[in-house]
């Protein structure tokens, strides 16, 4: 028996052939009836998933973060393949950064071509991200939603500025949306209400309440995620959607990449910064984690496998530890 009356909505990402798409499998997120570790395993029917980020053009990234992808940085399809085949990504989040007028101003048609290539290269479900430019994103999403028709992608992101256009593209071509708001429970509620009022059902919305980097507002995001989840469980229908977090934001923290020998090698600092950021949001209730560094991904996967899938993690006895010389 759960202590709450309500359950988080289940959202499907990706569609198989029989459903009109071409993915190998469908990922279901949500469905929780308690916070992780608070209730029983029945309260968490679907383990959280990791989506690995792929960018469609060169963007400024710290060296340590670029390194694992150095061979594929200019080929999103190969990049996506590497993430799925080598690093075990559950999904790919393809960010069409190049469409930004201040970056390369690539056309919606070109962006659609990239989406097609990635859809062919990998068979996992896709999150498609725009550039965040409120003038350009609607045009880009109209085009890419069309080429990916029926694939049940997540379009990221509907914001208070452009929710109508993004939701329209999702509705027209069988996709769902990520509803992005800046670290604010009330804005998150408001945007969800707006999306639902124009016909998008709750099971086609995933919330992104902004995942700040560790040390740069992390505790705000942590509490906003807990409040959103508890609000949904207590019966607030505007907060009952699964939660997505952009954990790669962790690399925005200067501690993750700044050259400073007193803090230790950058090769370690970046991945651990991302892993700690990710694992804390995971325990607060996040369902989809967008991540990037393979080490951080495998660390968070271990926690998912243990806490959500019940796979045992080896530990030693404290008596044994006492005998170790350190």
């Amino acid at each position: 028996m759960s202590r709450w009356s309500s359950r988080i909505v289940e959202v499907k990402i990706g569609a198989t052939k029989t459903e009109g798409g071409s993915r190998d499998k469908v990922i279901v997120v949500g469905g929780e009836s308690d916070l992780p570790l608070f209730g029983s395993s029945e309260d968490l029917p679907h383990p959280p998933v990791i989506s690995m980020d792929v960018f469609d053009c060169k963007i400024p990234l710290p060296r340590v973060l670029k390194e694992p992808f150095s061979e594929v940085l200019e080929d999103p399809a190969e990049w996506a393949k590497l993430c799925v085949n080598k690093y075990g990504a559950d999904l790919i989040s393809l960010h069409l950064v190049s469409t930004d007028p201040n970056v390369l101003d690539r056309s919606p048609k070109e962006a659609a071509k990239t989406v097609e290539e990635v859809l062919q290269a990998v068979k996992v479900p896709l999150i498609i991200g725009g550039s965040g430019n409120p003038e350009k994103d609607p045009k880009v999403f109209e085009e890419v939603a069309k080429v990916a028709e029926g694939e049940r992608c997540l379009l990221a992101s509907a914001t208070l500025d452009v929710y109508k256009e993004i939701a329209a593209a999702a509705l027209a071509y069988g996709h769902s949306v990520v509803a992005f708001t800046p670290v604010d429970v009330n804005l998150a509620k408001h945007l969800n209400r707006m999306l639902m009022s124009i016909g998008l059902p709750p099971n086609r919305i995933v919330m992104d309440p902004t995942a700040a980097s560790l040390g740069y507002g992390h505790e705000y995001s942590f509490s906003v995620i807990e409040r959103i989840r508890l609000g949904g469980l207590q019966g607030d229908k505007d907060l009952q959607m699964p939660i997505l977090v952009g954990v790669t934001n962790a690399w925005g923290a200067r501690e993750a990449w700044l050259k400073d020998p007193s803090l230790g090698p950058r090769e370690y600092r970046g991945p651990i910064w991302e892993a700690v950021t990710g694992v804390t949001y995971l325990l607060a209730g996040a369902d989809v984690l967008m991540m990037m560094h393979p080490i951080a991904v495998s660390l968070v996967k271990r926690v998912i496998d243990n806490v959500f899938r019940g796979e045992k993690i080896p530990t030693k006895e404290v008596h044994e530890w006492l005998k170790e010389v350190i």
Partner: peptide, 10 residues
């Protein structure tokens, strides 16, 4: 330091 700093910041 690289191991303890993220915990102290958290």
């Amino acid at each position: 330091p690289w191991r303890i700093l993220p915990l102290l910041v958290l």
